[in-house]
Design a protein around this nucleic acid. Sequence first.
RNA 1: GGCGGCAUAGCCAAGUGGUAAGGCAGAGGACUGCAACUCCUCGAUCACCGGUUCGAGUCCGGUUGCCGCCUCCA
Length: 466
Amino acid sequence: MAIRLYNTLTRQKESFQPIDEGKVKMYVCGPTVYNYIHIGNARPAIVFDTVRRYFEYRGYDVHYVLNFTDVDDKLIKAANEMGEGVTEIANRFIQAYKEDVGALGVKEAVDHPRVTENMDEIISFIQGLIDKGFAYASDGDVYFRTRSFDSYGKLSHQSIDELRSGARIEVGDKKEDPLDFTLWKEAKPGEITWESPWGTGRPGWHIECSAMAKKYLGDTIDIHAGGQDLTFPHHENEIAQSEAHNDKSFARYWMHNGYINIENEKMSKSLGNFILAHDLVKQHDPQVIRFFMLSVQYRHPINFSDELLKGAKSSFERLRNAFENVKHRKDSSLDLTENNDKWLQEIESHKQRFVEEMDDDFNTANAISVLFDLAKSANLYLQESQTHSRVLTAYEETMKELMGVLGLEIEKVEELLDEEVEALIEERKQARKDRNFERADQIRDELKERNIILEDTSQGIRWKRG
RNA sequence: GGCGGCAUAGCCAAGUGGUAAGGCAGAGGACUGCAACUCCUCGAUCACCGGUUCGAGUCCGGUUGCCGCCUCCA
């Protein structure tokens, strides 16, 4: 069975066919690093990290590239406001990005190219477009001649004339046509600049991705991904640049994730209604945030609120509990080779269902529902009067494996309790034995205050963090 | 104006022709000294109207409401 994914270009789900057998060349548009990212920026990071993990799970070698836009208007503005250099700010927020997104379980990209480190490639790419007549220099700027690219609009499914009617005509424009977009921008006094054949300046926004995708992945890549709002104009322009320049199809599959809304309104840096991932991971378990993001199909919008996160926490707890229940029971299980095929088969069929759901355009919402079914199955098995370590191990390993595909870490780090707490738990144990329930409850309440929850099971006392 | 998306139980959310997955919250029961965990039981005229079909949440047409892109934006 092949993996099927929704391709924005064709507006339908297609079977994934790699350019090179067993390999995936994937380019994801990364952040402009002038601030901490908000949770809307975190969604593509998480979603496409999950796509990558799933491809890897299915045996593909994924060349995952995520760029950093480290020079543009907003960065220059931020630099002026903070009285710092553009490079310093970019460095700081790239570091912050990696930390925040890392906390959310996102793996490092294979390559993290930066605009400022690929200036030669960008400049020669622009020159190539000029040489072929797709671009022109105009008084220090360079523009892409949009009408010269015949299939312009194929990604956003708009005809060039439809776009024309919506385009803003700038006063005193250096453009031949309002639809033309900037490849190179002449520097204003005091701005960070690079030398080029057209004078000092810096690249426009779209050209970086065309140049860097080519450099790191080649002329044609398998998957190009990003937020839905990048479809037009960013990705449309990338296609125009790359295909005009390389004479080859740019990307076979285009994936776009839906937005995160706050109170049903789009969240964005420019609207000011954003929640920083940097803050959120301190207030909530990052695993729960990731779980929440994946509980909705990636192309659909997610509405965000503390209340919804709280619900996600409860849901996630259920999976964690099942996992801990299984682990806890292993100590008292038998190691007999008895006929437990029924349970082992059940585990296997859950695994298959999980794969089927993920194969269908990375339907994490359904994949998660399979995890709940698996948890249920495990809990039912635990109802058996006698359990077997072989089956318990299978449950444990499978849960860990499938959660891992989603980038979720179900196994909590073994934490040690301090001596005082240990002593209290011991004391409570004795108190219960003595049927001194008043004292036992007192201790349980006390520990709860410290965020340690005790559970008395037939296999002994368990504790967990609240 | 052009392009597109969404509307499923109190909440979240799957489901592209065959009599509505899953989770949270809530109610009752079992287990427990009491809890917690867990198990059992309980919930939907799928926005509205019409059509196609033996059969539609699912296809077609229309209506209403919400949202996004067309300008920097994940």
